[in-house]
Simulated scan of single mutants.
Amino acid sequence: MVNKFVCCLLLLIAATSTNAASTTTNSSAHSYLVSILGEYGYPICAGVLVKKNIVVTAASCLKFYNPDKLVVVVKNGTQIIQIAAYTFNRNFDFFTMESDVAVIKLAESVDAQYITLASKQRPTGASGVLIGWYSSNYAVEVDETIISAEDCVSGKYNFKNGDLFDTMLCGLAQPGACGFLPGSPLLSHNHLVGLASWGNGCGNKGFPAVYTDIASFISWIKSTEKSL
């Protein structure tokens, strides 16, 4: 339990890094990707627009910081928007990282791309792309492969039985994935399938990352965005 909490904190403070295994693109191609800034102006989390004024991100972004002092940066860093309302899943547990999902309502709408929520869990072996920030003007794409929970805790990696819940996904990246902010979106077939939640070691050493499984929370997300 303690290791998982520490790994989450490391994700929160890590700077996004890249190498040859990552693809850097202009973030205008990923205008759904947002950055959440803390009170001192530093990015603490990423998030994804799912409607013109709704952002889905990790619960840890709101639990470990004062949400009233956070702002959301969109459109290549050219627009800073205040948060009008927010909530995170009441079952979120910062020791197990279970239910690491939150919804933010923006104070104004954004003219940008929006991502559709995945309604079904992607099967083992499915490919995906993790999108994160390299800088305010560039996004990073890293290819991921979804692996089974059994494989994830089989002993090949730094995970053990009890670490993973049914509401989590394990994604194995090409070497080079490291330092992605919590809330960074995992996409598959242009659908949001996961949110970067926690990990135990960097992808460049062959360790998977653990994601919040969006399909497990789609009903909660949809009902929450209507109530905010």
Rank of each mutant, 00 (worst) to 15 (best):
Y114R: 12
M97Q: 13
Y42D: 05
V210L: 04
N89F: 11
S35H: 07
T24G: 00
D68N: 12
S99M: 02
I218T: 15
G201Y: 10
C178W: 03
I104N: 08
Q121N: 12
Y32I: 00
L192H: 08
I81W: 01
L164Y: 08
N26S: 15
C170R: 05
N3S: 14
Q121Y: 07
S154M: 08
V72I: 13
Y138G: 00
L172R: 06
S28F: 15
F217W: 02
K52E: 08
I214W: 05
V71S: 10
D111T: 06
G171N: 02
P185L: 13
L49W: 06
T24M: 10
S197L: 12
T224Y: 07
T212V: 03
A46S: 15
V48M: 10
G41P: 10
L33Q: 12
D163W: 03
G201C: 09
I147V: 11
V153G: 01
T16G: 15
R122T: 11
I214A: 04
R90N: 14
V48D: 03
V101G: 01
A173T: 09
T87Q: 14
L181P: 01
V48R: 03
I218P: 01
F217V: 03
P208E: 04
K75F: 06
F95R: 02
V72F: 06
E144V: 14
L37V: 11
P182V: 13
L12S: 06
Y211M: 08
D166G: 10
P43F: 06
D151H: 03
S216Y: 14
S22D: 15
A177H: 08
K160P: 00
A20K: 09
G47S: 11
V210K: 00
A107I: 05
N3E: 14
T23F: 04
